[in-house]
């Protein structure tokens, strides 16, 4: 594991902790998109289907469990918690997130490593994660002034993506197997995108 990957994981973890802190401390989820949170829960549930079949490391396993549990807890709070759910900006959070799920599913069916249940859902989770932030960004724009913790949540989420991209660039130049794999995926995705256009 390189330093970019670790920094990415940590900023990802911090973003989730900031979000939990905001909901817990203010008993409010205003400014947070339930659509985005549900998409992230779906991302983790579909990506970590390998939790019981492939072991990578204790670190990976614990982080996977933390991501699944925390994303489900956030969705639970926003939907079920007696106080928290009242502060949800339902009328502003109207992004049609089903289209994002549909687009990710179609892309996963077209571009994947193997045509197996696990691989299709793994590819689906990768595409969906790239799109899942959209409802949150739309809500952010609509709600105008945003509280500090919500702003910091989105900032750390962005930092996580930035560090992961640096990690991929680093791995591209240092791991031959990785760069070949990325090259194949990238070509396949571009082919599909151009075919669509």
């Amino acid at each position: 594991m390189n330093i970019f990957r670790f920094a990415g994981d940590m900023t990802h973890l911090i973003s989730i902790l900031v979000l939990l802190l905001k909901i817990y401390a203010t008993k409010s989820c205003s400014g947070i998109s339930l659509k985005t949170q549900e998409l992230y829960a779906l991302v983790f549930l579909t990506r970590y289907l390998d939790l019981f079949t492939d072991f990578i490391s204790v670190y990976n396993t614990i982080m996977k469990l933390v991501f699944i549990a925390s994303s489900l807890a956030i969705v639970w709070c926003m939907r079920m918690h007696r106080v928290v759910r009242r502060s949800y900006d339902k009328d502003l959070d109207t992004f049609r997130h089903y289209f994002l799920i549909l687009a990710s599913l179609i892309l996963a069916l077209l571009v994947h490593e193997k045509f197996t249940f696990q691989e299709i859902f793994w590819a689906f989770s990768i595409y969906l994660e790239a799109l899942a932030i959209l409802p949150q960004l739309v809500l952010l724009q609509r709600s105008g002034n945003v509280d500090n913790l919500t702003g910091q949540y989105v900032f750390f989420l962005g930092a996580y993506r930035a560090f992961y991209i640096l990690n991929w660039i680093y791995r591209y130049f240092t791991e031959q197997r990785f760069s070949r794999w990325i090259g194949e995926r990238l070509r396949a995705v571009l082919l599909v995108v151009f075919a669509y256009l």
Binding site: D9, D50, I56, N60, K114, W181
Partner: peptide
């Protein structure tokens, strides 16, 4: 495992 790439990430 034959498949490489991003599977060892989160």
């Amino acid at each position: 495992a034959e498949s490489s790439g991003l599977k060892d990430e989160l």
